[in-house]
Design a protein around this nucleic acid. Structure first.
Lengths: 200, 200, 200, 200
DNA sequence: TATGAATGAGAATTCATTCAT
DNA sequence: AATGAATGAATTCTCATTCAT
């Protein structure tokens, strides 16, 4: 028999969304193991039984969430069309991109941080994140190929990885540190950092 | 009530070291919650009671380990005397530094990753890592001040933070990705990235 | 975090009652520390998890039990209306009262004895018993005030304390000793003791 | 081989005494199960190994202590020679006796309370306390027989039990309650209570 | 005699998950 | 669809006691 329900009626859809939101909040704050299924159900206003009607287990919800949320970085990159920025200074283009990703942080960073720590212990989570990172890298590769003649990097693939990691990790760190003391110069410095690296 | 033992006899010292090593291996692989105290004890070849004689609980051991291991980055930076590199190309100096930190990864990265995910849930862990990051930043500030006239950054403090995070996070990510397919160009690209950012 | 269950369904109510009865039996026989939660659960015919669904911990159940059972002495005193005994010999009234309390012993004494030993170590238990003793004293004060003109005590409050303790402690001791060799004269002697003390 | 040591040298004697005192303090405050052997040893300034050189186990020390301390009530009674009080008012004699026992409380009551709770679970402890209570009763019987012609009790043995319990339990309760608010009238009331019961 | 390191059985407690209603 | 009572495996941690030194 089919285990988890695929909601058809509107009520079911709403219920599932409420669980997803409650799960996002809890997992972001306390991670997979720090959150218990009862409290997700309670926060969603449903019974524990209902939780298990919609999700095979706690981990399944976690995985759906990292797929959704950590995938947002790629979405932003995909939305970003280099062609729209013809004629602009490279540094400004980079800065615009960094700003776009910066906006994601609250909804991506905490969950991402928790997921990263599970990679070594959970092959499926590792695969998901690795695929997301690779997708980001490939997308950045395309972008770099579009401005290939302006680049001064030795190896474009390595450069794409580095820029991807900076976008993810350094911006995340910056974001956390800035929660404490906001530093408006950070985006400018990051734009300098990336554009000086890539462009002559 | 009963405090943890401060080993007096040599035997006790040895036992404590064995537990520390076993804990490092387990925590690095499976994190704080993925590891249970019995298996640390078993791996150290001691009884569970002995484990609790030396450590209040597994979190205490985890904390001692992140203090030791994550502090190694700072040690490397402190060892690094800019004066010894007078007359060398800035990029070469940066590359040397990056290589020195690169060597730490196996003993720092996995544990660091696990600890990072716990920051939001554990104020003490957060404090320890925050202090380590600040110490790294301050050390980098000193280094940058020593070559102040060659720099082209807008704000030295922000630059120190950025370089610190790149050393920690980006190199860690690079290291993990390279476990799969070693990329010899990575250190060169990283050296380019950092030196182009800092120096004209 | 997860609170104890407030049973909604009838099944849950029944389960909670079974745990309470099993706890009473075990605690009465072996005290708080001599009883373990598994055996209460087993005796109640439920799993250990169910036990903890209804009670935060075994101490919580213990406390609920002493509140219920040790409060019975006060209930008996409250039920006892002096007005109903107008014109009877004081000694007979006292004897009737003592008999009423005597009947409680099996359900009060063993648990009470265990609780008494914990007073010094557990402020909450101390508070509960102290409040019960004070309530008994105040009730006895009322009774004594009703027959004030017949009394020959120096200080009515002290007398109320003494009579309360005799009812609790001496009758308890008597009861235990009599488990071994029943002594039918005990109630008579106790009635003499109390009535000669109070009345001329 | 003989397990526990019978100290011969003075040093050993001193060590044993220090353990006994430390055990008395801990057991009085926290009971048998609330005290752990390490803390007794620590308080006595000896190692845990030394503790077990002198006592088979924790319970053995507890038993030695209740034998010593709870036996003090009988000692007081034995010291009390009725012949010395010829010609005095019975109430005054009773009052003198009660005062003598009252003085014991700090060193007897807390431990006694803890021991009482263990009677049902530990036959040896039960036997010891029962023997002490019987000895007290027999001693009181002797006293009562000495003033037999003045008594107005129905059954002298029952009376001896009652007076014994009052001395132990009621005075203990009174003592505890009075730790909070000292009531100088208590001894007088108790003297009234006992003397009115016994004497015409 | 004295020490204190080591032991491990045992107790408390949690929580993901199932299933009868 | 939804509920929430029940389960019990898994884990943490304590402490009485032993024994090699």
């Amino acid at each position: 028999m089919a285990k988890t329900r695929n909601p058809i009626q509107e009520r079911g859809l709403d219920t599932k969304l409420r669980i997803i939101e409650a799960g996002f909040a809890s997992f972001s704050r306390k991670g997979l193991h720090g959150t218990n299924s009862r409290e997700i159900a309670a926060a969603a206003g449903v019974s524990i039984g209902t939780f298990y009607t919609y999700f095979k287990d706690k981990r399944q919800l976690f995985i759906e969430l990292i797929q959704t949320h950590c995938g947002k970085i790629l979405e932003v990159l995909n939305t970003f069309q280099v062609e729209n920025y013809q004629g602009q200074e490279p540094r400004e283009v980079v800065r615009t991109l960094i700003c776009a990703v910066w906006a994601l942080h609250d909804s991506v960073y905490p969950l991402n941080q928790k997921a990263m720590a599970l990679r070594q212990m959970d092959p499926e989570i590792d695969r998901i994140i690795a695929e997301q990172e690779e997708a980001i890298m490939r997308r950045l590769m395309l972008v770099l190929q579009g401005v290939q003649d302006k680049l001064r990097v030795r190896d474009m693939e390595t450069a794409a990885w580095l820029v991807g990691w900076i976008i993810k990790e350094v911006m995340f760190s910056a974001h956390r540190a800035n929660l404490k003391a906001d530093n408006p110069q950070l985006l400018d410095e990051l734009a300098d950092l990336v554009s000086r690296y890539l462009f002559a």
